[in-house]
């Protein structure tokens, strides 16, 4: 077992993890953060997207030990029913959510884009969201929601 320190959603944790343990498993099984989803296990679908030290990563491709000392944001750390993040609000209002399995990863990719770039162009939005697969919505309303959230941020 390896001892690691993490800050997840602004809370510090000391965890003992297996050398081969993936970050997604540590988040889901040790911390009970089940909003991070596994869709493919090979970094293709983006359902397990989290924000690690300001960058989006596929948590199925990162070893928990590699995250030692990192600051992480999972979906549980973004917004709540009283005060949703503008991305979350836009997703709901525009109708960007269907089955919802890709949604946590989508929200985190969008949030991280807007954190870095409050005035993204349509093509920048497309590129930022292209690592997250969705099989239901055809992306149309997802891309619109990100655009609306960006505009809301500008005001």
């Amino acid at each position: 077992m390896i001892e690691i320190k993490l800050v997840v959603n602004e809370k510090p944790y000391n965890l003992n993890v297996e050398p081969s343990e993936r970050l997604i498993d540590a988040l889901r099984n040790r911390l009970g953060l089940l909003g991070t989803k596994e869709g493919c296990g090979e970094g293709e679908c983006g359902a397990c997207t989290i924000i690690m030290d300001g960058k989006t990563v596929n948590s199925c491709l990162v070893l928990a030990a590699q995250a030692n000392g990192s600051v992480l944001t999972t979906i549980e750390g973004v917004g709540n029913r009283r005060s949703p993040h503008p991305v979350q609000k836009a997703f709901v209002e525009v109708g960007a959510v269907q089955c919802g399995f890709c949604t946590p990863g989508m929200v985190l990719s969008a949030k991280n884009l807007l954190d870095k770039n409050s005035h993204p162009s349509e093509s920048e939005i497309g590129v930022a969201m292209s690592g997250n697969l969705c099989r239901c919505t055809g992306y149309d309303k997802i891309l619109r929601a990100v655009k609306i959230a960006a505009e809301e941020g500008k005001q």
């Binding site: 269907q98 239901c136 149309d140």
Partner: peptide, 10 residues
Amino acid sequence: EGQIAGGVTQ
């Protein structure tokens, strides 16, 4: 609209 965009994409 959501069904249509999803269907077109499939």
